[in-house]
Design a protein around this nucleic acid. Structure first.
Length: 399
RNA sequence: GACCCCAUCGUCUAGCCUGGCCUAGGACAUCACCCUUUCACGGUGAUGACGCGGGUUCGAAUCCCGCUGGGGUCGCCA
């Protein structure tokens, strides 16, 4: 088989959505696994909604996830002449016609249109009983730009795309695109419609289900490798019980034919667990560097703090962090003396009458220590604890 | 509504193609216990699923049909 060529084709009309990222990821895995090419095409034919900031956001999110692409970016907005040439071919053949300022493609009105989907097998549509397929397809809008369904066909063929891996919300677009391929005398690619990522109510994931933009996960302190790992497990599995897999292992094991046909609910609990697994694998100096931004965001200036001390602090919390942004809350007592005490904790832990003189005694005990080191502090603490008749929990929380 | 897709624990999934090894395995979450002077990490265990009904077969989670349920699409948006 010839070289595999796939593409991810986002529209710069919003941030990179977690679902789109998963589609991009599966394309990328497939390309890298097969030793093929992964291209990026920017579908910016909607002049109103396409924004430069969104394009930058999408590209930086892809880079953050480690999804590198081959070749130059392809901008649909720069290829209008190409689409126009293609449309003219159809007009010349009598397969398309101008209507007002738009151009419509004459779609076949009877018979069947079908295709062999890599995941679903044969999917077929009966044109006579399918309402939305009956109307002639607009391929050029009256503002002079091509429509999605037309530009996609022209580009996928022109770019030599061999496999179109996209969300299954595109299944109904496929019977619109296939006749265009045929009319243009082009060979359709292999289609593979993968299920969408769902929210808790099993409808396609959107803002009301929680964070959907990749950048939000970055801000909350998720690690890109963890996101990649978690996303790869949504709708796919290596076939055994392995769950924590490195990027290299994923590329090696990824098999498009093992992708599930069922939509998967995005579960933050498990993502957090996966992220925690990755956090624990990090070396302390590396983790410390990753923690700096969250500290700065809180208004602290960690770069002025003693590095050795900071790393000790990070070591102390290493096992507790599952999202980087938690750190300032977790460790605030060590670097912020202006914090408010926890009212609930106060009620829960300070009511015990046995604690009455505990603070004073503890302070005296510590002051009387010959040397202030881990061993003697611990021994003195244990002794006092025992003398007061307190358990570890009763003693540690208040003191 | 029409068309299309889908259907294993609460969630992510293994098993399904190539029926028997499945009294359905793993993970997250939950609960209990262990470890631990707190929390957390780690360990052990518990709860928990083949949507329903018909077939086919000696035998079905696995194959077929129907039903039900859920989702998606019906733009000069992409």
């Amino acid at each position: 088989m010839s070289e595999v060529r796939v593409r991810f084709a986002p529209s710069p009309t919003g941030f990179l959505h977690i679902g789109s990222a998963r589609t991009a990821l599966f394309n990328w895995f497939f390309a890298r696994h097969m030793g093929g090419k992964f291209f990026l095409r920017i579908e910016d034919t909607d002049k109103e909604r396409s924004k430069q900031e969104f394009l930058e956001e999408i590209l930086s999110s892809l880079k953050w996830l480690g999804l590198d692409w081959d070749g130059e970016l392809v901008f649909q907005s720069k290829r209008t002449e190409f689409y126009r040439t293609q449309a003219q071919k159809l007009i010349d053949k009598g397969l398309a016609y101008p209507e007002e300022n738009a151009i419509r493609f004459r779609v076949p009105k009877s018979g069947k249109v079908g295709f062999e989907d890599m995941l679903h097998g044969r999917i077929e549509f009966d044109l006579e009983q399918h309402g939305s397929l009956a109307e002639d397809l607009v391929i050029f809008k009256s503002d002079g730009s091509p429509t999605y369904n037309f530009a996609v066909v022209c580009d996928d063929a022109d770019m030599g795309i061999t496999h179109v891996i996209r969300g299954d919300d595109h299944i109904m677009n496929t019977p619109k695109q296939i006749p265009v391929y045929e009319a243009l005398g082009l060979k359709p690619p292999i289609f593979c419609h993968i299920p969408l990522i769902l929210g808790a109510d099993r409808s396609r994931m959107s803002k009301r289900h929680g964070a959907t933009a990749i950048r939000e996960y970055l801000e909350q302190g998720f690690l890109p490798d963890a996101i990649v790992n978690y996303l790869s497990l949504l709708g796919w599995s290596p076939g055994n019980n392995e769950e924590i897999l490195s990027r290299e292992e994923l590329v090696k094991k990824f098999d498009l034919s093992r992708v599930l046909k069922t939509g998967a609910v995005f579960g933050k609990d498990k993502l957090e667990w996966v992220n925690g697994q990755y956090v624990r694998k990090l070396a302390v100096p590396v983790l410390t560097d990753l923690l700096l931004p969250s500290l700065k965001k809180r208004g602290y200036a960690p770069e002025t703090w003693d590095r050795v001390w900071l790393e000790k602090l990070v070591t102390l919390h290493h096992e507790r962090i599952f999202m980087l942004a938690q750190f300032p809350d977790l460790a605030q007592f060590f670097f912020d003396d202006k914090i408010e005490y926890d009212q609930v904790a106060r009620e829960e832990f300070l009511r015990d009458p046995r604690l009455k003189d505990a603070f004073l005694k503890y302070a005296q005990t510590l002051e009387g220590l010959a040397s202030f080191d881990t061993k003697s502090v611990e021994e003195a603490s244990r002794a006092l604890m025992k003398a007061l008749g307190l358990t570890g929990k009763e003693f540690i929380h208040p003191c």
